[in-house]
Design a protein around this nucleic acid. Structure first.
Lengths: 225, 225
DNA sequence: GTCTATAAATAGATAGAC
DNA sequence: GTCTATCTATTTATAGAC
């Protein structure tokens, strides 16, 4: 049910943002407006839950512009995910390649991931949703973005193991053990923010610092010798 | 985008399964067939990704029967979630109320949760998806089913804390720290099972015993003093 | 209880004027 | 680059025969 008609086989002709010296209208940032409106909308309602029309209206532009600037709904969605993974991968790589002891890097990793979820409100929702669905909207190229993140994380683990302070642990399990509780907790708090649910203690927010401390504890006790 | 028209305000008239001594046709198990077909379909494609028509066809019955036996698509979905939570809550409560030391109960909890995910293939997918979306399809009554599960888990924590073997920890964070990695790992393996992804080591399955051992380690190191 | 037929709404996508 | 208008497929849901 991802897309009603078979995907149009990708001729890939990216217009590229804002070439100087054109004859047409100013075009302030139609492409960017579409991108950000779609990112928020997808994170709130999921790929199937958002209509192309709604994205366009939210961006304040015409629906047809989505098909002009991107190749369609699915291509726009993938562009959003790729951008997220590119930025996330760069930040995690910066942590992994810094000159810190492995344990510090793990703490920095937790903080970087937390910052990522706070800087882009759509990041955790969109990512968790896509994972929960089994990533049916992503192609191999987009999935490759995950590898960048995971391999940076794995470098930290390997360094700690070489130094004898970390035990051997499956990198994927370790990664999911840190990020999973965080993503699910954010989803839980979001569920509690829905109207008529304020009275459910089960869905009440937990202070940010308490969450951060908990995640660091998980991280270190899972991978430390 | 949950349902196109406003929900019909719930007169709640459950037909009840199979009353003996009727005059109409045998009706072997139309209701059950619909229930199971829908559970699998919802877990595969999500609430919005499955059409009523598809559920009916998969169950081998007519589409109109869904509206006869349940009140509509949303009511059927909620019935499935409620059944899951009822059964899950009962199993976790059985673990919590047994005569074991707290640490054993935690291990039993992990095993019970794992068994739950293995016994009902749709359980982890459906649950993770619904959580990832912020539970937009659930009413307060259905959400109450979560409380049963969580309170049983909290009883184990409280018992261990009273005995001095567990440290004080937020029950919700502890719960998510065990179940989150498991659910996300299942989703990851499912993503890897999609056609054309067998070559991605990042999505390769991890042996069940390794996962179980990892979850137990997380559980105990998060809550133990 | 079960079915066919259809209503009423909305989806993604495109053609073509400007 | 941007727009309006529209095509076509699909959706949830119901009416009414049997």
């Amino acid at each position: 049910m991802v897309s009603r008609r078979p995907p149009p086989a990708a001729p890939r002709r990216r217009p590229g943002p804002r070439r100087p010296g054109r004859r047409t209208a100013p075009a302030p940032d139609t492409r960017t407006a579409l991108f950000e409106a779609a990112a928020l909308a997808f994170s709130e309602a999921g790929f199937d839950g958002v209509s192309v029309d709604r994205i366009a209206r939210r961006a304040g532009v015409n629906k047809a512009m989505l098909y002009y600037h991107f190749r369609g709904k699915l291509a726009l969605y993938r562009a959003i995910v790729r951008e997220m993974l590119r930025d996330g991968g760069a930040r995690i790589a910066a942590v992994a390649d810094a000159a810190d002891p492995p344990e510090t890097k793990i703490r920095r990793f937790v903080e970087a991931f937390l910052a990522l979820t706070e800087g882009r409100p759509w990041f955790p929702r969109l990512m968790l949703r896509e994972m929960a669905e089994g990533a049916p909207h992503l192609d191999l190229e987009t999935l490759g973005g995950f590898r960048t993140v995971l391999s940076a994380f794995s470098r930290i683990l390997a360094e700690g193991q070489a130094a004898g302070v970390f035990r051997p642990v499956h990198p994927v399990l370790a990664y999911l053990s840190i990020t999973g509780p965080l993503l699910l907790n954010l989803a839980r708090e979001r569920a509690g923010a829905a109207p008529g649910r304020a009275a459910l203690p089960m869905l009440a927010p937990i202070p940010r610092d308490q969450v951060r401390a908990h995640l660091e504890r998980i991280a270190l006790c899972v991978i430390r010798t």
